[in-house]
Amino acid sequence: MSNENLLVVLNEWEKEDFLPPPLWSRLEKIFPQLQYHTPDEIAKKGWARVFSEVKPSILITGWRAPPLPPEVGLARESGLKYLCHLPGSVRKLVPRLWIENGLIVSNWGRSISHVVAECGLMMIISGLRRAGYWNYAMHRNGAWKTDALDTQSLFGRRVGIHGFGAISRCLVKLMEPFGVEVSTYSPSVSDEGLAEYGVQRSNSLEELFSENHIIVELAALTPEAEGIVGERLLRMIPEGGLFVNIGRGAVVDEDALIRTCAEGKIHAALDVYCTEPLPADSPLRKMENVLLLPHLGGPTVDQRQTAGAYGLANIERYLSGNPLESVVTLDIYDRAT
């Protein structure tokens, strides 16, 4: 049992998905006096009143939690020491000054990398098989295959990955049965780190895009990387190739991607966009050679409890004085979307 005051701010479906009964019971054993509020209750009362009444030192949040206020005084005087955010990005939830004033923040980090990689593999295979086009055409237009097919297989292909973080590493493992040849452009990763996964180094983005039939976008969104994948690079993808983005939408110049895909020489499979939700009038929605998902790359409903268990384990580390995993530092905060 802990003497720390815990406040959980989740709506009912977030609580059910992230912290199903076994995890919730475990949490209650650690914090017998835990307080549970829905996001609507927090919005109605306001954070200042909630902090005054509950005095939480630890806070668990989900997607729907209202943003913490930007007041410096409240950041210093709230008594909040650790915020365990069960999903990913905290930019819309936590003002930077709270972290500057010592608040420890963690998120789901690498706990869901394998699930995002699974989505990436599905998008690669679906894009190569032109599943997006045929699913729509058969449902809406009564279509059937013709002699002019351009479907392709993943077996034995060359795959280039832009960025080589945790998701990329999981994706490489998932692609092993297909006998692919993988290269990456990720200057910060050591030769030993690439050799561990049997991945070749591309010395430039130009080399990566021009020498691989499949390009997977997984680069971190840094100021230098914003919009770095432009028309020149996209046109280097070999004709009939596939561009997959399961990373960050803003790394890609979306207008350039639209222009390139409109010519029909390459295909694309996209899960992230510069503006989300993707506008209803986006030209991407009308392209037969572009497979679209509505940012589904994160954990599926059945896998959200993995992130919940990861967050709970982090809280236990915090209580025992052990180092936390997936801490959102100021540097990570600044690079997040």
Rank of each mutant, 00 (worst) to 15 (best):
E41V: 13
H139C: 11
L68A: 01
K29F: 06
G109E: 04
E254Y: 04
L59W: 10
R91W: 13
P277C: 14
H162Q: 12
V182P: 03
Q303W: 12
P66E: 13
S326G: 10
R169L: 07
G102M: 08
T222A: 07
A65C: 14
A219G: 11
M1D: 03
I315T: 12
A225G: 01
E192Y: 07
P20K: 02
N5T: 14
A195Q: 14
M138K: 11
E14D: 13
L257W: 00
V251L: 01
R49D: 14
V159Y: 02
C261N: 02
M122C: 12
L257T: 10
F18M: 08
S168D: 01
G247F: 00
V105F: 09
V172C: 06
A131H: 04
T275H: 07
G247Y: 05
S113N: 11
Q305I: 10
E316V: 12
V229K: 00
R317L: 09
P56H: 11
A280G: 05
V199C: 06
I258G: 00
P69G: 08
L234D: 13
L194V: 11
N203C: 08
N3H: 10
V94Y: 06
V116Q: 00
P39L: 10
L291Q: 02
P67R: 05
E254W: 04
P22Q: 02
E226I: 12
S320T: 15
G311D: 12
V72R: 14
A148W: 13
L233T: 09
I104M: 13
R140D: 10
I161W: 01
L174V: 01
S89T: 13
V94I: 08
C119T: 15
M122N: 07
V252I: 14
A225R: 13
I167E: 06
W98G: 08
E71Q: 09
E41M: 11
N212G: 01
L10I: 12
D331G: 10
P299D: 05
N11L: 00
E288F: 05
L80V: 14
G109F: 09
Q33D: 15
H37T: 06
V244M: 07
I112C: 06
H114P: 07
L97G: 00
M122A: 15
V199L: 09
S183I: 13
L149G: 06
H114Q: 12
Q305N: 09
